[in-house]
Design a binder for these strands. Structure first.
Lengths: 188, 188
DNA sequence: GTCTATATAATGATAGAC
DNA sequence: GTCTATCATTATATAGAC
């Protein structure tokens, strides 16, 4: 049923996001992909840990391409931020999906199997944080303030996503994105 | 080993927060409490679903007592907000623990066993949102703006918690709390 | 590459002694 | 209330046919 590897990883990711690492059983994963458990082991001989590792790299590449990529484009910082925020919205399926990296990062603390992935994610977010801080510096903010604004923006994005999840109202996320875009591209 | 019920629920909650609902196995729960699996079934005949239900109510009561309670105290709105934010910090163990309600709310979508709890949590957060919005109104904001500020504050709190988790740096959460307190009790 | 069938281990849950 | 021992179920993982 899975036509290609890209679709396969997407389907697997959805299950991990919705059910967590331990809640995503091979039966769930097999059902979501239309494959048998044995076929999943053909694609991922290492089982769930290998799936998670592959999916983490896939998610990092996707978030980079959809959102953070725009911070390096040839555009004004304000336009770059606008595209970044819109890209983050696309990455989360406009508030309907959680972030796979956040899910794995949360489980990684207690789960030895995926603890290395948590470290990998932390390093990537550190890089992304620096990219975001550089953008705020390019808008005229001093380094310390730029770093603070970068943390605040990421917190606002993930906080809005969490808020929408708790309230069961994805629109809350979209409204937050619209507000953030307006705030950051006008005065700042 | 668990001296009383309060300690018992606290120990169980820690495991559910760190490992998620499905990752929190009875072996983990038994080890964390110092009890046997059979003894856990004596306290919670319904097993893990009953534990989760009890813990949700425990967490709601705790967050109400530590944080939202302050919004109804006899104090200026600014002082109430200050106490609220500090209470939220205490609730999360100053950025070292995630919010149990957020963890359950995330799993609830796909997990039938705890889907009713997700609804219960959503209703509680709706009440809390109204309390927070009322506080912002008391500070002179119009209803619509007060609601927006209430959502933004909750998103900032949970976003800072997530940010600290991803970066593996609990201090990021404390810094965010200090900044939020300063912002909300000065100008606004 | 995909499947059915199966092996092995872990999980939720119970019985019954103390 | 607590435990050990055990059960039934479900989980991960593999073997081997096609």
């Amino acid at each position: 049923m899975a036509t290609d590897k890209a679709l396969l990883t997407e389907q697997l990711q959805s299950v991990f996001i919705e059910r967590g690492y331990d809640g995503a059983t091979l039966v769930h994963l097999a059902h979501a992909t239309g494959l048998s458990k044995a076929s999943l082991y053909h694609h991922y001989p290492g089982g769930k840990p290998e799936m998670a590792a592959t999916l983490v790299r896939h998610a990092i590449a996707r978030l980079q391409r959809l959102a953070f990529q725009h911070l390096n484009a040839n555009a004004t910082p304000a336009r770059a931020l606008e595209a970044f925020i819109a890209g983050f919205g696309a990455y989360t399926n406009y508030g309907h999906s959680a972030c796979f990296l956040a899910v794995i990062s949360h489980h990684g603390t207690a789960h030895e199997e995926i603890a290395p992935l948590q470290l990998e994610i932390a390093r990537q977010f550190e890089d992304w944080h620096q990219m975001l801080a550089a953008t705020f510096e390019a808008m005229g903010n001093k380094p310390k303030r730029a770093e603070r604004l970068a943390h605040e923006l990421m917190a606002s994005l993930y906080g809005a996503l969490m808020n929408a999840k708790i309230h069961r109202e994805p629109r809350l996320f979209e409204k937050a994105l619209a507000r953030l875009t307006k705030e950051l591209t006008q005065t700042e």
